[in-house]
Every structure is written in C-alpha cells, then in structure tokens.
Design a protein around this nucleic acid. Sequence first.
DNA 1: GCCAACCCATACGTTTTCGGTATGCCAATG
DNA 2: CATTGGCATACCGAAAACGTATGGGTTGGC
Lengths: 295, 295
Amino acid sequence: MDLRRLRYFVAVAEARSIGKAAERLRMAQPPLSVQIRKLEAEIGAPLFRRGTRGMDLTEAGQALLARASEALALAVDGAEAARAVAAGKRGRLSVGYMFVLANAMLPRLIPELRRSVPGVDLEFAELSASTREARLLDRSVTVALCMPAINHPEIQVARIGAQPFMLAMPIRSPLARLVAVPMERLQGRPLIALPPPEQDPASSAVAAMLRRHQIVMPIASRVETVHSAMSLVLAGEGFAIVPACAKLGAPRGIVFRPLRDAADSIDIAVCWRRDSQSPLISRFLKCAEKVVARI
Amino acid sequence: MDLRRLRYFVAVAEARSIGKAAERLRMAQPPLSVQIRKLEAEIGAPLFRRGTRGMDLTEAGQALLARASEALALAVDGAEAARAVAAGKRGRLSVGYMFVLANAMLPRLIPELRRSVPGVDLEFAELSASTREARLLDRSVTVALCMPAINHPEIQVARIGAQPFMLAMPIRSPLARLVAVPMERLQGRPLIALPPPEQDPASSAVAAMLRRHQIVMPIASRVETVHSAMSLVLAGEGFAIVPACAKLGAPRGIVFRPLRDAADSIDIAVCWRRDSQSPLISRFLKCAEKVVARI
DNA sequence: GCCAACCCATACGTTTTCGGTATGCCAATG
DNA sequence: CATTGGCATACCGAAAACGTATGGGTTGGC
C-alpha cells in the first residue's frame, strides 16, 4: 500500500483518464498506466472499466476512492500539523505557576499569550515548587513561573524580574502605622512560615534574609501555602514575610508594609527543560517579561 | 509523503526505539534509521528526541502520529473495502422491477437477498420498461426484473421463468363463469391495452398471441400501467390480458381466467449490463430463480 | 471504407530509491 | 577502562519507478 499509488489512483479517478491525469501529475502516461495496474493487482480486482473514451470507476474503485482521498488528505494534513507545531503556530503550551504570582500575572499574561501564540492550546496549572520541577522534567508542563528559580542541571532559567519582600500583618497591628518597617522591629516577633527550605526554596530566601540582618523570629506556625499564611496572619497568629505581589488577592484586614533598609528581593523566573526546543518558550518568555515589567 | 515512511514512523513511535521497531518490521536497523531521518527532513523538523535509551516523540511528532496512524488505517481499510465489494461481500445492489411482478416476487425475493448477500445495501425501484433499460445502461440500476426480457446488444438476459396470460374481467361478466376461456370467445370484445409495442414490449407479446389465434379485439382504451388497466376492467370498460401474477394485488371484483388452448406465455427475465462483472448479479440470479419457481 | 486521431498497454533502458552488511560514535554501566 | 546498548554513516546490490518508443483497439471524418 503505497501512498503514491493512491495519489495516482485518485488523480486518474478524478480525471477519468490516464492521459489527462498524467498531464496533471507532470509525468508520462505509460508509467501511470503501469502504476494503476499494479494497484489493481495489489487489490486483486479491477478498479476501472477501460472504455474507448477514458476510464470509469468500478464499484470497488468507488469504495477505494472515498477512503484513499481521505487518507491522502490526512497524510498531508499530518505533515502540515507537524510543521505548524514545530513553528509554534499550533500545539500546546502548559504553564505551571505558583499561587502568589497568579493574581499579579495571569490576568495580563493570558491575553498577551493569546495574541502572541494564537492557535496554541493554553493550559495553566497552579503547582507547588516540587511539583513544578517534576512536571517540567516529565514534560507534562512546558514552562514554569517560579519564585525563586528552579535549580536543576536539566532545567534552564531566565530571570524576568524580582519582587521585594513585604511584611504582612493585621490592620490593627501597631507596626501597620509605619510607612516602612525597620528590620530590627521584627526581632522576636512570631513568624508564619512556609514549608522548610528543602521543600520550598522561597522560604529559604526569607530565612537567608533574616539571618543576614541577624533577626530571629520564632516560628509560630508552618503552613503549606501563602493563602493559608494570610488566614493565620488575619487571625493574629503572627507576621508573614512575602513577595510584594502577594498583596493582590490577599483578604481584607491585612496590610503590607515594605521592610526599610532591606534591599532583599526574590527573583521571578521562567524555567523550562533545557532540551525542550519548542519555539513557544521564547514567545512565552517575551510575554512574561512584558507582563512583569508592569507589575 | 510516502505511506511506507508513515508506517515506519508509527512503528518507531510505538516501540519508542528504532531497533525494536526494526525487529517488529522484520528489517535491519540502519535503513529504518535512514527512513526516519528522511521523513524528518521532509517535514523540516525533528519528530523524535534521541535519548540514550531510545527515541521519544517531540510535540511535532505527536501531531503527526495521530494523523499518520489514521491515514494508515484508512488506506488498509480502503483496500479491504474494495476487495469486499469486488467479492460481493459489500456494496450496493439496485434492482429495477416492473409493477406486475412486485406483489408476486418482492415479498419472497427481499428476504432471500438479505440472506444471500448480507452487508450489501439493497435498493428497489419500480420502473417502466424504457426506464429500466436506460438505468441499466447508465448503471444506476444493477439488475432489472423484466417481463419480457430487454433486447439490447449491451444487455445480457437470463430467462428465469414464464407466466401464462390470463383474462381479467369483472366478476359479473358472463365469461367469469367459465373455468377456462376458449380463445374464440374473445373475438370482438373490447380490450384494455397497455402502451403500444414500441414503448412496452409486454403489449407486443399480447398482440402477437391474438394475431396467432386470429382474434381481433378492438382497443377500448390505452393505459400506462397494469394498475390503471385493472381500474378500467372493474369499471366494465373491457377485458385485459395480463400475466397470471397480476392476480396478486388486483382489486376485489376482478376475476382472472386462463385462456384455454393458448399455450402462450411471457418470459420473466433478469437483465443486466454485459460488462457489469459484479458477483452480486449471479447471487441475485440464484435468488430470483428460487423465488420464481415458487410462484 | 480507409485513414487519422485518441487512448491505453507493453517493452526496454536508465535512474532513483530502498534495504542489508559493516562500522563508527556516544553514553551509560559495572 | 572495558563493555554494552542504541543510533548514525558508508557502501553496495537489488528493486522499483520513470521516460521513450511502440503496439493495438476503437471512434469519427473524408
């Protein structure tokens, strides 16, 4: 079953003549005649009635024609689809992101992507730090928005921005009256912490900052997500140190204040598999940079 | 776009390895490797990621795989469908018949055909004599049940039976009291005739019979169909001479009597295009013979 | 009624393509 | 460091396809 033979067959069926079809196929008439006979031999039955004025499909030929032209169309469509995917004009772009970035970035990022890569199926998944890494590696996610970047030999990183840390507290906290909170005022205050550094690199950035300023904050609670941290802060359990973008989407009753004298910030990065040569990644990078610049 | 390449591609994609696929395809590994690279060159993009432990589809490759395997299936299905049609296991059998035969034959013929050619689409069309011939010639009808046979160089005929002529008359006609009507009793009686012989060969058979017995019957009316003839007979307009099978489906109030001393009968025949080599025709012939034998 | 035109089929030589064998390269493994 | 496993490259022989030349049958015109 050769696709070329089927193409010839369809051409002859449409032209109702070997000579005419050969002309359209830009080949001589005899080899086309031979190919048609070979196809008939392969099928085991005549596909055409040879009349004195050209060729005419038999019933068997009609049965073949329908499927052959469909198969032909599918083959060229498959090639085109593959080319389109390779060129980034179609395909799937699955984005893993972290919760704190969702409110700040997605509302602008999604329309930006739709404009930049029309025809591409977009997927978004809110994933924890370790899941982001795992799903990048098994390719079930194309790119990840991370804060901070993933550190792994197979994963490539592009820093697209940074977020200063801010102190989150209940509105009736005394510190809330300050425009900016001096670092030393944090000494000894209870901290709502995220999972330990080996599970979440973001909390390691916070810990490093406190250590650098020689501040010790007892850990009042450990929570899984920034969302939970906000709840505990609102309940008066303690303070949280979070990237500035967490402000968006935080519940009423919580205020955020910059940390004075602390130039510390945490990187926002786009991460992807080093061997993933999809052109969608550079498009995504451009969109993400554009969006981050306006945060 | 070669179907063989697509088959190789699908095999490699499924085996996730060139070596394994080559084994399954019963060929050596190097030529398969070459074919895959040629396909990639044709597409213009890599379809596989070459790892140290085999091959893995790229996104472009996945896009191609879906269509390629469909195209492959369609191609083999097309070949099988063509073979099935050629073998008479599938296809279309369109039967043209004449009105007078419908009641006598179709109720038995249709189930017989369904048993004999399961999987074949059956079509039935009640057609006048000239239309039967035309539609056989343009192949919109595969076979025709005729009475008498069609006479045409392109059309082949198989006689499957015969019908004696009978006299149709109103039940209160004096002749109705006879078990069989002697031919001479028809002399001078009004005849309800079908279209003239050049349009309907059946009426020519009736005319020939009357001529042979030297009977003259004035034509009271000419009608298009046997159905109309029955109406006029019922109305007392005259007598009709029809094949015995017209008895079935005739309205109440009409009686049929054999013509004594007249061995005349009219052939029932199956007709088809001489160049139509469909195996369905011989199957149809067998069924029709079986049914006619039981009329 | 014969000749020209049309169309498909066959024959043969040339070229392209494909498949097999031998071998190389690279990475992972012990 | 050697071995194994897997893909890529090189080269050769075989098969398939294409083109040119030609035959044979039917149609239609002079």
